[in-house]
Amino acid sequence: MSSMAMFKDDVYVGKLSLDQAILINMFLKTIHSTPFDIGVDAKPLEKYLQNFLSGQDNETIQLNGKIIKGRTNTKIVDSKQLKFQTDVTIQMNLLELSRELDLANEEVTSTLEEQIEKQVKKQYEELLTQTQKMKADPFGYGEIYRINKNNGELKRDQWHELYPEIDVDYKVDVKIVEYGTIR
């Protein structure tokens, strides 16, 4: 499998990468034991980096890990303004890093978790924008909106027009549970 097809009703409107498909899958259900690769900004971790090797990318640190448990919880904050809040919780094992860090140091681990949180939030925001352009809602925000409407009625065409206007605040919490071979 190389990508995920996006449909609006029964019409193909685009495709998403497998990394984006993992984000959608985590949105729709709790995921377990899922490979997870991400690049984070190296600057906040600069003072903790060890043994710089020439030829390495100075700006990012690539991480390879496994999501032990990943889930989301979404609520509508303001139905008139189409504002939602999605809480993303990820517990993960860190298997490899492209740069050497002392993860036994809690300050290092905490800073790394913050950088992963920022990157996951950015990925969700970019994915939302991309799907809004397609007017295809793989997340199910329309269903949450419909459930919270007074009369519970919402036609597909109505939601296709409203979906590009929604605003979602993603709150991401990442916890590195274990770390293995780092390099």
Results as ranks from 00 to 15, higher is better:
Lys135Ser: 12
Ala136Gly: 09
Lys171Asn: 14
Arg146Asn: 10
Asn148Met: 13
Met26Tyr: 03
Leu95Asn: 00
Ser79Thr: 03
Phe84Gln: 11
Tyr170Thr: 11
Ile38Lys: 09
Asp102Met: 09
Tyr141Pro: 08
Leu23Glu: 07
Gly152Ser: 13
Gln132Lys: 11
Glu59Ser: 13
Ile76Cys: 08
Ser54Cys: 02
Asp9Met: 03
Val108Trp: 02
Ile182Pro: 08
Asn58Trp: 07
Leu23Tyr: 06
Phe7Trp: 00
Asp57Lys: 05
His160Thr: 13
Phe7Ile: 01
Met6Gly: 00
Arg71Lys: 12
Gly65Arg: 09
Leu101Thr: 05
Phe139Ile: 04
Asp169Phe: 05
Lys15Cys: 04
Ala5Asn: 14
Ile182Trp: 05
Arg146Glu: 12
Glu114Ser: 14
His32Tyr: 11
Asp19Gly: 01
Glu117Thr: 03
Ser17Thr: 15
Asp10Asn: 13
Gln81His: 12
Asn148His: 14
Ile31Leu: 08
Glu117Asn: 11
Met134Lys: 09
Asn105Asp: 13
Glu114Ala: 13
Val120Trp: 05
Gln123Pro: 00
Gly70Pro: 01
Ile144Gln: 07
Ile67Lys: 04
Lys66Tyr: 04
Gly55Pro: 00
Asp137Asn: 10
Gln20Trp: 02
Glu165His: 13
Glu107Phe: 00
Gly14Ile: 02
Leu16Thr: 13
Leu95Pro: 00
Asp10Ala: 09
Glu153Ile: 12
Ser79Asp: 06
Lys75Thr: 14
Tyr145Met: 07
Lys43Asn: 11
Lys47Ala: 07
Glu113Pro: 03
Arg99Lys: 15
Asp87Asn: 15
Ile182His: 10
Leu49Ser: 07
Met92Asn: 01
Gly55Tyr: 02
Ala21Trp: 00
Asp78Phe: 13
Glu178Phe: 10
Asp102Pro: 10
Tyr124Cys: 09
Leu16Val: 11
Asp41Arg: 10
Glu153Val: 13
Asn58Arg: 12
Val174Tyr: 01
Ile166Leu: 12
Gly14Trp: 04
Pro35Ala: 00
Ile38Gln: 08
Ile116Arg: 00
Gly152Phe: 14
Leu128Asp: 14
Glu161Met: 05
Ile67Arg: 06
Leu112His: 01
Asp173Ile: 15
Glu178Ala: 11
Val168Pro: 03
Gln56Pro: 04
Met6Phe: 02
Arg71His: 07
Thr131Lys: 08
Asp19Val: 00
Ile68Thr: 04
Lys69Phe: 01
Glu161Lys: 12
Asp9Ala: 06
Ala42Pro: 02
Arg146Gly: 10
Leu127Tyr: 07
Gln85Thr: 09
Ala136Glu: 10
Tyr12Leu: 13
His32Val: 04
Ser110Asp: 08
